[in-house]
């Protein structure tokens, strides 16, 4: 409940303030968002499976986000930023789909 409220409040605040993304953050914010979405779905799945732990969620959330951004950063430095970005997005997308499938099975038994 608090998580849903926080999510909605964040969206509302973001659209209300419309802050400018800093230039140094622009290449990493989208991938960090994808990573955090993956963490959120993972947490939801753990919650449905009854194994949810706040500490695990927070740590995985922060580490996933930072690692995803770091991978893009290193890829940019190496000159393969676009490819690595694609790779990270693919991996995270697969994870998100897997988590969504588990959530779906949990919720609808289907």
């Amino acid at each position: 409940m608090i998580a849903v409220i926080g999510l909605l409040a964040g969206v509302v605040i973001g659209f209300a303030l419309q802050p400018d993304v800093p230039l140094w953050l622009q290449p990493y914010l989208p991938i960090a968002i994808v990573a955090s979405l993956d963490a959120m779905f993972g947490g939801l799945r753990a919650r449905l499976e009854g194994v949810f732990d706040e500490k695990v969620f927070v740590v995985s959330f922060v580490s996933n986000t930072i690692v995803a951004a770091l991978i893009v950063f290193v890829g940019d430095r190496l000159g393969v930023g676009s490819q690595l970005t694609t790779g990270v997005v693919v991996v995270l997308g697969i994870r998100i789909f897997t988590n969504l499938a588990a959530i779906r099975r949990r919720l609808f038994r289907a």
Partner: peptide, 29 residues
């Protein structure tokens, strides 16, 4: 959706708020 008030849940909510904020910012930009 049961509210469970403790520090960990608040932290989770805070992280979700950050995610929503980031999504909205990215979409807006």
């Amino acid at each position: 959706l049961r509210p469970r008030l403790n520090g960990g849940q608040l932290l989770v909510g805070l992280l979700c708020l950050v995610v929503g904020f980031a999504v909205a910012t990215q979409v807006e930009s």
